[in-house]
Design a binder for these strands. Structure first.
Lengths: 147, 147
DNA sequence: GCCAAAGTTTACGTCAACGTAAGATTTCTC
DNA sequence: GAGAAATCTTACGTTGACGTAAACTTTGGC
């Protein structure tokens, strides 16, 4: 029961950490603070990570390094997405239209919040980039003047 | 001597911190680790921040929050830029053309490194954004289907 | 010249995000 | 089935970036 056997494609913590370029300790830490509970455990209690888990790790890393969220904020974001997954299930099992609309609207709201954050970062980076480019142009023209 | 008097437009640490939206402790910390030495001190030893200092603080904050550098990396980056400022002085005092070219090339190199980092972040953010947008479109079309 | 407000140094406290060490278990290989 | 390698839990250590408290000095307005 419960796919425990000889790890059908599942990764043990060592390989999972290696592939995600983090330490095993980091994965245990994510679990401890409720960020990532590996879907599977061996009979003896060893963690087994699915491909979905690996995607989640990548997602966490992205939110952390690209957007600068701390792990608490990331937990909240993922909770939102997890709730959505639950709702998605409810959605599929064909509830009434009103409920479906509700679910979709909430999903859209969560998505929009993230998009705004990304857009904000992008705007800042564009300003920064244009300043750097301006400098670069000045340097280049100075160099041309030297001939 | 040395513009110490009644603070000609210079900011004391409280106002400087307020304007930069950081704490006084943070400014002292920056000084302690060699990130920002205020250009001026009062006779009694109080820090006075110039407008240039304020710009530097903003720059530090940008590198920290936008690009995710830690203060050690930022110190190195600023050191590079400071060296450049020195070179700029040497540049202005009219050395030979070969030296000028050297200086400009180094400036360009430093600038390019930063631009690459910013471009890297931008690329990642664009991917992220397109994923989010894709999701958003799916949600929207689902919503339309409900009518 | 006085006094409250702001600043100074020195030093210990804190919080997140892990690192690291120890000792007991499990798993894999042969 | 035996031993090495990987994992487990538990728990204390570390690092960066400040926060905070204490005791003392400067500064600026009256």
């Amino acid at each position: 029961m419960h796919e425990v056997s000889s790890g059908g494609g599942l990764l043990r913590i060592g390989k999972a950490a290696e592939r995600a370029e983090v330490s095993p300790r980091t994965l245990r830490w994510y679990e401890e603070i409720g960020l990532l509970t590996p879907a599977n455990h061996s009979a003896g209690g060893a963690r087994r990570y699915t491909e979905e888990d690996m995607g989640r790790i990548a997602h966490i890393r992205e939110l952390q390094s690209l957007l600068g969220f701390d792990l608490g904020e990331i937990r909240d974001i993922l909770r939102g997405e997890d709730d959505l997954a639950g709702l998605r299930h409810e959605y599929r099992s064909g509830t009434d239209q009103g409920r479906r609309r509700e679910i979709l609207l909430e999903a859209t709201a969560i998505n929009d919040r993230l998009r705004e954050m990304v857009a904000g970062k992008q705007a800042c980076l564009e300003i920064m980039m244009s300043e750097l480019t301006e400098k670069s142009i000045r340097y280049a023209s100075r160099l041309r003047e030297l001939d």
